[in-house]
Amino acid sequence: MGLAQEYSLGVIRARGLEKRYGDRQVLRRVEFELPRNGFLLVTGPNGSGKTTLLRICAGLAAPTGGELTCDVGRPSIGFLAHEPLVYRELNALENLDLYGRLYRIRERRERIGMLLERFGLWEERHARVASYSRGMLQRLALCRTLLHEPELLVLDEPYSALDDDGAALLDRELAERRATASFVVATHEPDRVLPLATARLALG
């Protein structure tokens, strides 16, 4: 019993993972195990299935073969996608407030205020998201991802569109959470997060 528990300390285990869309095979026999508080770096060229793999990890897609088990419940997953996953016609506060309610965060307002402050969006909090620049959208998406203090962070190209300040900010955030959360990160710039990574998965 004790042994088995110790053995299953992994947060995500993928065995022979396959994913096909119609005739196109996107993932082929992917195997990995992410230990608790581990940091899996996923690399690969465009079209190698990084995004698909991350969507499967977040529970948004189902594999067509093999299996993936995830020990973290859905409310404890933070998912950063290519798109910011926010409503363009609402402002930053309204968007985060909706997510805060759905995630049932206590002291929602304080938490949202703190995140917006930290990511430099506080001044723009009442502006429609449609008027945001690409970099601001990415910052808002990061706020949304971190809002509920997730135990598992699934981040797809987290550095895209961020300026130097933003990237440095994200570096600090990741390093800070490194001890308390597990990570699956796909990126084109592996050097940036390589010091944090515990494992590396090259696709394609």
């Binding site: 529970g59 948004l60 859905r74 996608a81 997510y99 049932r104």
Partner: peptide
């Protein structure tokens, strides 16, 4: 609105 920016994924993850 959900389709435009893929927001539906965010809602699917956040809603119990």
């Amino acid at each position: 609105a959900e389709r435009e920016q893929g927001v539906i994924d965010g809602l699917v993850l956040a809603t119990r």
